[in-house]
């Protein structure tokens, strides 16, 4: 089944800047796809569209379908329950006074209360390895913990499509590694926008390269990211992991590309 289908998506910010210029792609259910590109390429704008945050479209021919439902203002409640969006800055996403309140925010919108709500929060925190963090205050958490609480808040809504904006920014190597392992365990379809190309190689068998609001390349991650002229032409570079054949086998440790 196709989890996400974007057709001819165009977006122009107030002031005239065109950030998306006819984006089209599909993601199969269960797939993990990387979105890479220089700053200002339109990655974050695209992610906001997938969750219906930017619902207005420039073109009548534009469409976004999530699990066969069109992203429209009429479908917003369903879309937001099924598309989990992880924002770049955890402090933007952790807006409640305690970890419990924050993780409970999404399920509460769907009418969950009492013991069911507590069980849902406990389950989501267990999924991200933060059992017992319910009464912790967000400003007392490390960056890695904040990121995991954000993910728990998203997972508590039980989304079928996970959309992550720069999930590794500001993470130390250990927190980054833990996040990578956690995302590997999650069965949901994943779309990951990031500058961390090594992360893409490690997690995503397929990648889309964005530049100036267009998809300029798409294909198996290892093939696309090893193309040095392509990478340089779009403000990127071949990741270290693909430049050398490491004696410890790191270059071969990521997922195999799709045929």
């Amino acid at each position: 089944m196709i989890a996400l289908e974007v057709s001819n998506l165009v977006h122009r910010y107030t002031g005239g800047h065109e950030s998306l210029r006819g984006i089209s792609f599909q993601v199969e259910e269960g797939e993990c796809v990387g979105l890479i590109g220089p700053n200002g390429a339109g990655k974050s704008t695209l992610l906001l569209h997938l969750n219906g945050i930017l619902p207005e479209r420039e073109s009548q021919h534009s469409s976004i379908r999530v699990l066969d439902r069109e992203v429209t203002t009429q479908n917003l409640a369903w879309i937001r329950r099924n598309v989990g969006l992880l924002f770049q800055d955890p402090d933007d996403q952790l807006f409640c006074p305690t970890v419990f309140d924050d993780v409970a925010f999404g399920p509460e919108q769907t009418g969950l209360t009492g013991k069911e709500l507590a069980a849902c929060v406990a389950g989501a925190l267990a999924q991200v390895g933060l059992t017992g963090y319910e009464e912790r205050l967000p400003h007392r958490l490390s960056q890695g913990e904040k990121r995991r609480v954000c993910l728990a808040g998203v997972l508590a809504c039980d989304p079928r499509l996970l959309v992550l904006d720069e999930p590794t920014s500001n993470l130390d190597p250990r927190a980054r590694r833990e996040l990578r392992d956690l995302l590997r365990r999650l069965p949901a379809t994943k779309l990951i926008a990031t500058h961390d190309l090594e992360f893409v190689v490690e997690l995503c068998p397929r990648v889309l390269v964005f530049d100036q609001g267009r998809i300029v390349a798409a294909g198996p991650t290892r093939t696309v990211l090893a193309d040095a002229p392509l990478m340089l032409a779009h403000g990127l570079e071949v990741p270290h992991i693909l430049q050398h054949d490491h004696p410890h086998g790191a270059a071969r440790s990521g997922p195999e590309p799709r045929p």
Binding site: N51, R80, F87, D92, F95, F105, G106, Q109
Partner: peptide
């Protein structure tokens, strides 16, 4: 600017839909 991003994050998890 942050207030706008927080509002987006709230909407993304079903606020007022």
């Amino acid at each position: 600017e942050r207030a706008e991003r927080i509002y987006h994050a709230m909407c993304a998890r079903g606020w007022r839909t």
